[in-house]
Design a protein around this nucleic acid. Structure first.
Lengths: 193, 193
DNA sequence: CCTACCGATCGGTAGG
DNA sequence: CCTACCGATCGGTAGG
């Protein structure tokens, strides 16, 4: 276990930016705010990053990668749909709780990406959502899920999953695994036959 | 039925601002953007509104009022908890679907309010959430709800309810009433004994 | 990593 | 509702 870790300046900038973009929003965070929080002059930031949007891109696509690796594992597992869905939920919760600031930025600040990154991002997100829909369809084929509309169901599921960053506290009562279990209980009851 | 309505300039500014604050965010919307969309000069806006934040305040507290009137009706109804919860969900969905832009601003841009409005806003929001928790507690006392943690349950419920503005289309397949019913089905199954 | 600086744009005011 | 304008701040660059 690595409790403290020496961050490179670039990593430090990214970490501070994640927090500030989350707290104040991308647009309302100035490069001078960011530089001040890091402890250097605004101009010096540009020795480590290309532009303000470059930081945003790294945050958004970094988390997108995390979500993708998580769902890939589940998809390749050949498990029954109910177990797949439980694991997908658990993995999703884990990505968020491991990256609270970055997840919040991923969820709300992506719209400040410019093209072509914006379109790329939307494609990735759609593809991820598609993976969840496939699990619901599989469950209906297996005969264990009700004939729900998978689009509506997944929208509701993602809503519940994606608000976690807003209230989860690492010091709170529930562990990420417990949160995933409770959410599974709550949201699987309404879909199981 | 009033299909078209003559808006005063002030109402027009508010309407355009709701849309722009939602689409680009409060911080990234300039008074010049807003004035341009309205069709006047930036300086002329100040004959109708006091400041940029003044517009944000009107939007946020206006929707807060709507939510409060909705939940008050439910609270005074003396219905069993299950019926109360269904109605509260239905009313909540109705407020959002009737005010898509303003709801999005209410949910995401309130953090740009300055004190003392920020604290006032948070109090209103907490009080509203409290009303939902009371319904869950009532249901547990009635013996019809499981021994769930009402805080966790309401967090999940609000997550599902508050994401609706993001995907609801007035021209879509589901009416607000149908959305409320489907959400009630999905989210009440996990809590009912 | 800094000083010095760029043109552009910000929210808002004065005065008519 | 406009023209004209304010000081402050923006993201970013040049040059060392």
């Amino acid at each position: 276990m690595q409790l403290t870790k020496k961050l490179t300046r670039k990593e430090q900038i990214k970490k501070v930016a994640q927090n500030m973009f989350r707290e104040r929003g991308y647009s309302a965070t100035s490069m001078r705010d960011l530089a001040n929080a890091v402890g250097i002059e605004a101009a010096s930031l540009y020795n480590h990053i290309k532009s303000k949007e470059d930081i945003l891109r790294q945050i958004c696509f970094g988390i997108a990668d995390d979500f993708f690796h998580a769902i890939e594992q589940v998809e390749q597992s050949n498990l029954p749909a109910e177990e797949k869905l439980k694991q997908a939920i658990s993995q999703h919760v884990k990505v968020i709780t491991n990256n609270l600031d970055a997840s919040a930025v991923f969820l709300h600040e992506w719209r400040f990406l410019s093209e072509p990154y914006l379109s790329d991002f939307k494609k990735l997100r759609d593809s991820y959502e598609q993976s969840f829909k496939k699990i619901i369809i599989q469950g209906k084929e297996e005969g264990i899920f009700k004939a729900v509309d998978e689009k509506f169901y997944c929208l509701t599921l993602f809503s519940a999953l994606n608000w976690i960053y807003d209230w989860y506290k690492p010091t709170g009562l529930l562990s990420p695994q417990q949160i995933a279990e409770q959410l599974s209980n709550l949201l699987l009851e309404g879909i199981k036959k």
